[in-house]
Nucleic acid binder design. Structure first.
Length: 529
DNA sequence: AAAAAAT
């Protein structure tokens, strides 16, 4: 009876789902045999051309649940110029690039034209791909609409439309854009719609744009994976207190720590913490939305490839990003929205591995911690005593009653001197003079420990300089020049700008992109198909 | 209290 169905489900393999031989062979080559619940539930219907409403978090194998059937269905027919056959909408550039990687990986036996339309990079290459006729078009909404308005793109040939991470698009205010785009595509299309949650606005959207969808639901991740050890870490609330807490934590975890993502709530904090960590010789990179696109891709690639051990990031990296082997997640700030906590810590403990997450909490974070504990339904253990044992740094208390202008030098600890040094002056200068100045800052820093520097692995130092340089090309100050100004003293090997960065790292690595085995264990148990 | 996305 019910045990029979369980057995039948467990025995299910990809070859049972109706995928084409070409697709199956790519899946097998990637080392997968068993579909995840969302894949097993969605693929057969998607192959039949039905609309699918998939309710699933990232990390459930969701991407493959639309990539594989789309590849199969694309085997018939050909793309025409400026008329893409399929369209996949993603909320962030990194996610869009990641989906493209999936199409490349599982479409290796197909001859498909894939175009990635995202902001922050030049139009030329994107235009060329559209002109050639794209079988698969992956886009963030803004750039897609931009291309359309320039007349480079006709959406009335789209046969399959995928809307991914719909609830996140809602958070980001993309819903009007999504509606516009949906209205441009003939309703004879097939629509595959994915969302982790179903708030009323999203339900409305599905009622408007889906036709008799098959609903496939995988239970929510909010119950927090059991393979991730979670701890709260008390800290004073001043930035230097928190940075010191973080450094000590990282050092204490050193033996177990392969690599870590460190989340901050704000972009400025990402930048500050990143610079601070570099000064303390941590092998860190940074990732947030104000960095130029090349730097974003570079940082992510370097972190994935193990060239950077730490990645300081905003919530742009919280959801969906698939880096298979992250050992630690640190929340430098307690996330304001409890769901973000679940997404952030879900960057570790992937592909059935174990992971550790530490959340630095100050007295003013109490209510956010409470909200998180309510959401995940458990109390998070304190790492080394709770906040009642916090010693406020000398001359300060934790009460946030002082304004920003309050003197803050009084009680600083010895260890902090590095942290607060000449940063402001330095960054102002860098902003005016561009990148070459950043390397001199690095040189300056390294001077005090010449001996150490000499011993240090050269490539590591080069990577760090590269990192500091990239992080300095923040979009706000230089993105526009970036597109047309290779004349700045750029010593990096000349980039072939006609190809987006992600193609390069994709060719020279075969990092596993998460898939069937990329499902948290707790989900495997409760998932219903 | 934020971040994300077109310029």
């Amino acid at each position: 009876m019910s045990s029979d169905t369980t057995i039948a489900q467990e025995a299910l393999t990809f070859s049972d789902l109706g995928l084409s031989p070409k697709v199956l062979s790519a899946v097998t080559d990637a080392g997968y045999t068993q579909p995840t619940p969302i894949q097993a539930g969605a693929i057969p219907h998607a192959l039949l051309g039905k609309d699918v409403l998939g309710i699933a978090q990232t990390g459930t194998g969701k991407t493959a649940s639309f990539v594989l059937p789309m590849l199969t269905r694309l085997e018939k027919g050909r793309a025409r110029a400026r008329m893409p056959r399929t369209l996949i909408l993603e909320p962030t550039r990194e996610l869009a690039a990641q989906v493209e990687e999936n199409f490349v990986k599982y479409g290796k036996n197909h001859k498909l034209n894939i175009a990635l339309l995202i902001g922050g990079v030049s139009f030329d290459e994107q235009d060329k791909k559209l002109e050639r006729g794209a079988d698969v078009l992956i886009a963030t909404p803004g750039r897609l609409l931009d291309h359309r308005e320039r007349g480079k793109l006709l959406l009335n040939g789209v046969e399959i439309l995928v809307i991914d991470e719909a609830d996140r698009m809602l958070d980001m205010g993309f819903i009007p854009d999504i509606e516009r785009i949906c209205e441009m595509i003939p309703f004879t299309r097939q629509t595959l719609f994915f969302s982790a949650t179903m708030p009323p606005e999203i339900t409305k959207l599905t009622e408007k744009f889906l036709h008799a969808p098959v609903r496939v639901e995988v239970s929510k991740a909010a119950s927090a994976a059991t393979n991730i050890i979670q701890r709260l870490v008390k800290s004073g609330s001043k930035p230097w207190d928190k940075r010191e807490t973080l450094r000590n934590l990282i050092k204490a975890e050193d033996a177990e720590l392969k690599n870590a993502i460190i989340f901050c709530n704000r972009k400025v904090e990402v930048s500050e913490l990143f610079r601070s960590l570099l000064k303390y010789d941590f092998d860190a990179g940074a990732l947030h939305g104000d960095m130029d696109q090349r730097a974003r891709m570079q940082m992510l690639a370097n972190f994935r490839d193990g060239k950077l051990r730490y990645l300081v990031a905003s919530d742009v990296a919280a959801r969906g990003l698939d880096i298979p082997d992250v050992s630690h997640v640190f929340n430098y700030d307690v996330p304001i929205h409890a769901e973000d906590y679940v997404h952030r810590i879900g960057r570790t403990g992937r592909a059935g591995r174990s992971g550790k997450s530490f959340t630095i909490a100050t007295k003013s974070d109490t209510k956010y911690v409470d909200a998180i504990e309510r959401l995940i339904g458990t109390k998070i253990e304190w790492h080394d005593g709770d906040l009642s044992t916090v010693v406020a740094s000398e001359g300060e208390d934790d009460a946030p009653r002082r304004g920003k202008g309050a003197p803050r030098r009084a009680g600083r600890k010895d260890d902090d001197r590095k942290d607060r040094g000449e940063r402001k002056k330095g960054s102002e200068r860098r902003a005016r003079h561009g990148e070459e100045d950043a390397s001199s800052v690095v040189a300056q820093q390294e001077q005090p420990d010449v001996a150490e520097a000499a011993v240090a692995d050269i490539s590591e130092r080069r990577a760090r300089k590269e990192a500091i340089r990239s992080e300095n090309t923040e979009r706000k100050s230089s993105d526009r020049n970036e597109q047309r100004a290779p004349e700045r003293g750029d010593t990096r090997p000349q980039r072939d700008n006609s190809r987006p960065a992600r193609h390069r790292h994709q060719e020279d690595n075969d990092t596993t992109v998460g898939f069937g085995d990329d499902m948290p264990a707790f989900m495997r148990i409760v998932a219903k198909v």
